[in-house]
Amino acid sequence: MTDTPFDARTWRPPGLIRSSLWRWLLAVTVAIYLASALGSLEINWLRIGQGLGRGVTFLAAFATPDFVTHWRDISEGLAESLTMTGAATVIGIALSLPIGLGAARNIAPMPVYLFCRGVVALSRSFQEVILAIFFVAMFGFGPFAGLVTLSVATIGFFGKLLAEEIEAMDPVQAEAVQATGAGWLQWIDYAVTPQVMPRIIGLSLYRLDINFRESAVVGIVGGGGIGATLNTAFDRYEFETAAAILLIIIGIVMLSEYLSGLIRARVQ
Protein backbone atom coordinates (compact mmCIF):
# COMPACT_ATOMS: atom_id res chain seq x y z
CA MET A 1 0.00 0.00 0.00
CA THR A 2 2.56 2.55 1.14
CA ASP A 3 6.28 2.37 1.74
CA THR A 4 6.11 2.53 5.55
CA PRO A 5 8.15 -0.13 7.33
CA PHE A 6 5.15 -1.00 9.51
CA ASP A 7 2.65 -3.71 8.78
CA ALA A 8 -0.60 -2.76 10.45
CA ARG A 9 -1.98 -6.31 10.28
CA THR A 10 0.79 -7.96 12.27
CA TRP A 11 1.26 -5.26 14.91
CA ARG A 12 1.22 -6.53 18.48
CA PRO A 13 2.24 -4.69 21.65
CA PRO A 14 5.77 -5.60 22.75
CA GLY A 15 5.61 -8.27 25.47
CA LEU A 16 7.02 -8.00 28.95
CA ILE A 17 10.08 -9.85 27.67
CA ARG A 18 10.95 -8.36 24.29
CA SER A 19 13.05 -11.17 22.86
CA SER A 20 10.83 -14.02 21.71
CA LEU A 21 13.71 -16.49 22.16
CA TRP A 22 13.97 -15.67 25.86
CA ARG A 23 10.20 -15.72 26.22
CA TRP A 24 9.97 -19.28 24.91
CA LEU A 25 13.05 -20.44 26.78
CA LEU A 26 11.58 -19.14 30.03
CA ALA A 27 8.21 -20.80 29.45
CA VAL A 28 9.85 -24.18 28.66
CA THR A 29 12.12 -23.95 31.72
CA VAL A 30 9.17 -23.26 33.98
CA ALA A 31 7.22 -26.19 32.49
CA ILE A 32 10.16 -28.60 32.97
CA TYR A 33 10.65 -27.42 36.53
CA LEU A 34 6.99 -27.90 37.41
CA ALA A 35 6.89 -31.38 35.89
CA SER A 36 10.00 -32.56 37.72
CA ALA A 37 8.94 -30.93 40.99
CA LEU A 38 5.58 -32.70 40.90
CA GLY A 39 7.36 -35.96 39.99
CA SER A 40 9.64 -35.72 43.02
CA LEU A 41 6.78 -35.54 45.53
CA GLU A 42 6.37 -38.75 47.47
CA ILE A 43 2.70 -39.28 48.06
CA ASN A 44 1.58 -41.98 50.45
CA TRP A 45 -1.94 -42.72 49.29
CA LEU A 46 -2.51 -45.25 52.05
CA ARG A 47 -1.80 -42.65 54.75
CA ILE A 48 -3.99 -40.12 53.01
CA GLY A 49 -6.81 -42.69 52.97
CA GLN A 50 -6.52 -43.17 56.72
CA GLY A 51 -6.25 -39.47 57.45
CA LEU A 52 -9.23 -38.67 55.27
CA GLY A 53 -11.51 -40.46 57.70
CA ARG A 54 -10.19 -38.40 60.61
CA GLY A 55 -10.54 -35.24 58.58
CA VAL A 56 -14.16 -36.05 57.88
CA THR A 57 -14.82 -36.58 61.59
CA PHE A 58 -13.26 -33.20 62.28
CA LEU A 59 -15.26 -31.47 59.57
CA ALA A 60 -18.41 -33.19 60.80
CA ALA A 61 -17.70 -31.71 64.23
CA PHE A 62 -18.31 -28.29 62.72
CA ALA A 63 -21.93 -29.28 62.33
CA THR A 64 -22.16 -29.94 66.05
CA PRO A 65 -19.78 -27.46 67.68
CA ASP A 66 -19.68 -27.72 71.45
CA PHE A 67 -19.46 -24.31 73.06
CA VAL A 68 -20.77 -25.46 76.44
CA THR A 69 -18.64 -28.22 77.96
CA HIS A 70 -15.42 -26.22 78.11
CA TRP A 71 -16.92 -22.73 77.97
CA ARG A 72 -14.87 -21.59 80.96
CA ASP A 73 -11.61 -22.56 79.25
CA ILE A 74 -12.73 -21.06 75.97
CA SER A 75 -13.82 -17.73 77.47
CA GLU A 76 -10.66 -17.44 79.54
CA GLY A 77 -8.49 -18.22 76.53
CA LEU A 78 -10.44 -15.78 74.46
CA ALA A 79 -10.13 -12.99 77.03
CA GLU A 80 -6.41 -13.64 77.29
CA SER A 81 -6.00 -13.58 73.51
CA LEU A 82 -7.95 -10.38 73.08
CA THR A 83 -6.00 -8.67 75.85
CA MET A 84 -2.74 -9.88 74.35
CA THR A 85 -3.79 -8.72 70.89
CA GLY A 86 -4.85 -5.25 71.99
CA ALA A 87 -1.83 -4.62 74.18
CA ALA A 88 0.64 -6.00 71.64
CA THR A 89 -0.85 -3.87 68.86
CA VAL A 90 -0.64 -0.68 70.93
CA ILE A 91 2.88 -1.38 72.19
CA GLY A 92 4.09 -2.57 68.79
CA ILE A 93 2.73 0.48 66.97
CA ALA A 94 4.06 2.89 69.59
CA LEU A 95 7.50 1.38 69.08
CA SER A 96 7.26 1.27 65.32
CA LEU A 97 6.28 4.93 64.79
CA PRO A 98 9.79 6.27 65.54
CA ILE A 99 11.36 3.29 63.78
CA GLY A 100 9.19 3.85 60.71
CA LEU A 101 10.20 7.52 60.62
CA GLY A 102 13.85 6.54 60.93
CA ALA A 103 13.55 3.90 58.23
CA ALA A 104 12.29 6.36 55.60
CA ARG A 105 15.18 7.26 53.33
CA ASN A 106 13.82 10.70 52.42
CA ILE A 107 13.67 12.07 55.96
CA ALA A 108 16.26 10.18 58.04
CA PRO A 109 20.04 10.68 58.02
CA MET A 110 22.02 7.65 56.80
CA PRO A 111 23.13 6.16 60.17
CA VAL A 112 19.62 6.39 61.63
CA TYR A 113 18.20 4.93 58.44
CA LEU A 114 20.54 1.95 58.52
CA PHE A 115 19.86 1.27 62.20
CA CYS A 116 16.07 1.42 61.80
CA ARG A 117 16.11 -0.66 58.63
CA GLY A 118 18.21 -3.18 60.56
CA VAL A 119 15.62 -3.40 63.34
CA VAL A 120 12.83 -3.84 60.78
CA ALA A 121 14.73 -6.50 58.85
CA LEU A 122 15.57 -8.42 62.02
CA SER A 123 11.97 -8.37 63.19
CA ARG A 124 10.72 -9.46 59.78
CA SER A 125 13.20 -12.26 59.32
CA PHE A 126 11.50 -14.49 61.91
CA GLN A 127 8.02 -15.84 61.57
CA GLU A 128 5.77 -15.36 64.60
CA VAL A 129 5.96 -19.02 65.60
CA ILE A 130 9.75 -18.93 65.72
CA LEU A 131 9.72 -15.70 67.72
CA ALA A 132 7.17 -17.25 70.05
CA ILE A 133 9.29 -20.36 70.65
CA PHE A 134 12.23 -18.08 71.43
CA PHE A 135 10.28 -15.87 73.84
CA VAL A 136 8.59 -18.85 75.52
CA ALA A 137 12.04 -20.25 76.19
CA MET A 138 13.05 -16.85 77.53
CA PHE A 139 10.03 -15.87 79.66
CA GLY A 140 8.37 -19.24 80.25
CA PHE A 141 4.91 -20.41 79.13
CA GLY A 142 2.03 -17.98 79.22
CA PRO A 143 0.62 -14.85 77.66
CA PHE A 144 3.60 -12.60 78.42
CA ALA A 145 5.71 -14.49 75.89
CA GLY A 146 2.84 -14.15 73.43
CA LEU A 147 2.57 -10.42 74.09
CA VAL A 148 6.27 -9.85 73.43
CA THR A 149 6.13 -12.00 70.29
CA LEU A 150 3.25 -10.07 68.77
CA SER A 151 4.76 -6.70 69.71
CA VAL A 152 8.05 -7.54 68.03
CA ALA A 153 6.31 -8.91 64.95
CA THR A 154 4.23 -5.72 64.75
CA ILE A 155 7.37 -3.57 64.62
CA GLY A 156 8.64 -5.33 61.52
CA PHE A 157 5.34 -5.13 59.71
CA PHE A 158 4.27 -1.65 60.71
CA GLY A 159 7.71 -0.03 60.59
CA LYS A 160 8.38 -1.24 57.09
CA LEU A 161 5.04 -0.25 55.61
CA LEU A 162 5.04 3.12 57.37
CA ALA A 163 8.54 3.87 56.06
CA GLU A 164 7.46 2.99 52.54
CA GLU A 165 4.43 5.25 52.82
CA ILE A 166 6.60 8.15 53.99
CA GLU A 167 9.02 7.55 51.13
CA ALA A 168 6.11 7.79 48.69
CA MET A 169 4.75 11.07 50.07
CA ASP A 170 4.42 14.21 47.97
CA PRO A 171 7.77 16.03 48.30
CA VAL A 172 6.33 19.42 47.29
CA GLN A 173 4.04 19.59 50.34
CA ALA A 174 7.07 18.78 52.46
CA GLU A 175 9.05 21.47 50.67
CA ALA A 176 6.34 24.04 51.29
CA VAL A 177 6.37 23.52 55.04
CA GLN A 178 10.16 23.60 55.05
CA ALA A 179 10.08 26.93 53.24
CA THR A 180 8.11 28.54 56.10
CA GLY A 181 11.06 28.10 58.45
CA ALA A 182 9.40 25.29 60.41
CA GLY A 183 11.51 23.14 62.74
CA TRP A 184 11.96 19.41 62.22
CA LEU A 185 9.18 18.31 64.59
CA GLN A 186 6.80 20.88 63.14
CA TRP A 187 7.72 19.66 59.70
CA ILE A 188 6.87 16.07 60.66
CA ASP A 189 3.62 17.24 62.26
CA TYR A 190 2.42 19.46 59.39
CA ALA A 191 3.93 17.97 56.25
CA VAL A 192 4.45 14.26 56.90
CA THR A 193 1.77 13.15 59.38
CA PRO A 194 -1.28 14.40 57.45
CA GLN A 195 -0.04 12.65 54.34
CA VAL A 196 0.44 9.25 55.99
CA MET A 197 -2.34 9.34 58.61
CA PRO A 198 -4.99 7.37 56.67
CA ARG A 199 -2.39 4.71 56.03
CA ILE A 200 -1.40 4.62 59.72
CA ILE A 201 -5.02 4.09 60.73
CA GLY A 202 -5.61 1.46 58.05
CA LEU A 203 -2.45 -0.45 58.94
CA SER A 204 -3.23 -0.33 62.66
CA LEU A 205 -6.63 -1.94 62.12
CA TYR A 206 -5.14 -4.46 59.74
CA ARG A 207 -2.41 -5.32 62.21
CA LEU A 208 -4.97 -5.67 64.99
CA ASP A 209 -6.69 -8.51 63.21
CA ILE A 210 -3.44 -10.11 62.10
CA ASN A 211 -2.34 -10.07 65.73
CA PHE A 212 -5.56 -11.75 66.82
CA ARG A 213 -5.12 -14.53 64.28
CA GLU A 214 -1.46 -14.90 65.18
CA SER A 215 -2.33 -15.06 68.88
CA ALA A 216 -4.05 -18.36 68.18
CA VAL A 217 -0.93 -19.76 66.53
CA VAL A 218 1.36 -18.34 69.18
CA GLY A 219 -0.74 -20.06 71.85
CA ILE A 220 -0.12 -23.46 70.28
CA VAL A 221 3.62 -23.20 70.96
CA GLY A 222 3.10 -22.01 74.55
CA GLY A 223 2.30 -18.33 74.25
CA GLY A 224 -1.02 -18.56 76.10
CA GLY A 225 -4.44 -17.41 74.95
CA ILE A 226 -7.05 -19.10 72.80
CA GLY A 227 -4.31 -21.03 70.95
CA ALA A 228 -3.47 -22.90 74.12
CA THR A 229 -7.13 -23.82 74.63
CA LEU A 230 -7.36 -24.94 71.01
CA ASN A 231 -4.25 -27.04 71.36
CA THR A 232 -5.60 -28.76 74.45
CA ALA A 233 -8.87 -29.54 72.68
CA PHE A 234 -7.00 -31.15 69.78
CA ASP A 235 -4.78 -33.13 72.13
CA ARG A 236 -7.85 -34.60 73.81
CA TYR A 237 -9.54 -35.31 70.43
CA GLU A 238 -12.38 -33.01 71.50
CA PHE A 239 -13.14 -31.97 67.95
CA GLU A 240 -16.49 -30.40 68.86
CA THR A 241 -14.79 -28.00 71.26
CA ALA A 242 -12.02 -27.32 68.73
CA ALA A 243 -14.64 -26.59 66.10
CA ALA A 244 -16.38 -24.19 68.47
CA ILE A 245 -13.11 -22.34 69.08
CA LEU A 246 -12.35 -22.11 65.36
CA LEU A 247 -15.83 -20.79 64.65
CA ILE A 248 -15.37 -18.11 67.30
CA ILE A 249 -12.01 -17.12 65.78
CA ILE A 250 -13.58 -16.91 62.32
CA GLY A 251 -16.43 -14.81 63.73
CA ILE A 252 -14.11 -12.36 65.46
CA VAL A 253 -11.86 -11.97 62.40
CA MET A 254 -14.86 -11.34 60.17
CA LEU A 255 -16.27 -8.83 62.62
CA SER A 256 -12.99 -6.93 62.82
CA GLU A 257 -12.68 -7.06 59.03
CA TYR A 258 -16.10 -5.46 58.74
CA LEU A 259 -15.42 -2.81 61.39
CA SER A 260 -12.03 -1.87 59.98
CA GLY A 261 -13.62 -1.57 56.54
CA LEU A 262 -16.13 0.89 57.97
CA ILE A 263 -13.45 2.95 59.69
CA ARG A 264 -11.08 2.95 56.69
CA ALA A 265 -13.83 4.20 54.44
CA ARG A 266 -14.30 7.18 56.76
CA VAL A 267 -10.68 8.31 56.86
CA GLN A 268 -9.42 9.46 53.50
Binding site: V172, Q173, E175, A176, V177, A179, T180, Y190, A191, P194, Q195, M197, P198
Partner: peptide, 14 residues
Protein backbone atom coordinates in the same frame (compact mmCIF):
# COMPACT_ATOMS: atom_id res chain seq x y z
CA UNK B 1 11.07 34.52 52.29
CA UNK B 2 7.52 33.42 51.47
CA UNK B 3 7.15 30.79 48.79
CA UNK B 4 4.29 30.13 46.39
CA UNK B 5 4.20 26.97 44.30
CA UNK B 6 2.96 25.77 40.93
CA UNK B 7 0.78 22.94 42.22
CA UNK B 8 -0.12 25.06 45.28
CA UNK B 9 1.68 22.61 47.62
CA UNK B 10 -1.02 22.86 50.25
CA UNK B 11 -1.22 20.14 52.85
CA UNK B 12 -4.21 18.45 51.27
CA UNK B 13 -5.67 16.86 54.38
CA UNK B 14 -5.40 19.90 56.62
Amino acid sequence: MGMIFQEYALIERL
